[in-house]
Nucleic acid binder design. Sequence first.
RNA 1: AUCCAGGGGUACAC
Length: 357
Amino acid sequence: LNSCASLFSTLHGIEIHGRLLKTGFQFYIPVSNALIDMYGKCCGPSPSHQVFNEMIERDVVSYNAVLGSHARFGKEMEVAKRLFVRMPFRNVISWNAMIVGYVNCGDLDSARAVFNELPARNVVSWTTMIVGYTKYGFVDEARVLFDTMPERNLVSWTAMITGYAQNGRPMEALELFRKMEAARMKLDAITMIGVISASAQLGGGELAKFISSYIEENGIEKNTKILTALVDMHAKCGNMDEACCAFDEILEPDAFAYSALIMGLATHGYGVRALDIFNRMRVEDIKPDYITFIGVLNACSHAGLVEDGLKFWESMVRDYGIQPGTEHYACMVDMLGRTGRLDEAYKLVKSIGVKPS
RNA sequence: AUCCAGGGGUACAC
C-alpha cells in the first residue's frame, strides 16, 4: 500500500484493498491506516474517509492519515481544522500536518500560529516553517528559525540552501554548503540541486568544475534533475561542451532538460543548434511547454532567425495551445527590433491585451 | 517500513 501511495497507483491500491477484505487483514489497524493513507494520496479525502468510517477501532495514525488527506495540498484547511480540534488523539505529526497545509496554501500566519502553539516541536515542524518562509520570499525569517532550531538534519540544511538559491542569494547558499562540508555531513542529490543552482547563478567556470567533480567524487546520484541542473549550470558558466555532455547522460530527457539545453544554446548564439534540439524533442515526442518556447524564441532572436521565430510564434499557440506571456512577447519584440523590423515590433507591442511592461 | 518536512529549465535593456 505504501508503494501504491508513492507511485499514485490507484488501481493496484484498489486491488489490494479487495484482497484485504477477503483475508480479513483490514481488521489489523496498521493495514487500514495504510489504506487511508494510500487513498488520501491517490484519490483525495473521500475514499480515505470511507475507510476511516468503516474501521471498528482507530488510533492516532488513523486520524493523522485522514487529516493529511485534507491538509496535504492546503485546500480544505477548514475541514482539516475542524477535524484537528475534535480528534481524540493528537501527536506532533498531527500538528505538523496542519503546518504543512497552511504553508501550502500560503497562509504563513496560521502556520506560524500552529507552530507557536505546538508544545513539542520536532525537526519536521521547524523545517516545514523554514520551507514556508523561503517559498514566499522571507528568507531572513527562515534563517532565524534555522539558527535557533535545537537540531538540524540533512533536510533542514537542504531546505535552507534551496531557499537561498531560489531567492537569488547564491553566496549564502554556498556558504551553508561549505559549512556542511566542514562538518563532514553527507549530502544527497536533493541538496546538490540547490548547490548547483547557486553555482549557476554565480556563473564562475572554476566553481562549476569544482561542483562537477564533487558530484563524481562523492557518488551523488546522477538523476534527471541533477543532470538538468548541471546542463543549466555549465551553460550559465559559459561551458556549452560540458552542458551538452551532461545532457547526453540523461536517459530520458523531459521538457525541463530540453528547455535548459535550448536556452543555453540560445544564450550563446547557437540558434540553429537550439532549433535542432527542439526538433529532436518533437521526434522524441516530448511536449514543449511555456518555458521551452521562451528558449526557442530566444534562440531565433539571438541568431537573427526571424522567419523561424515568426513560424514558431504561430505554432506555439496553434499547435501547442500555449498562450504567449510577457517573456514570449519580449523575445519577439527583441527579435523584430534587432533586425530593424520596427513597425512590426511596434504593432506586436500594441497588440498585447494587457499593459506591456 | 501505518501518518508529517527538502528538488532541476524562465525573456529584454542597463
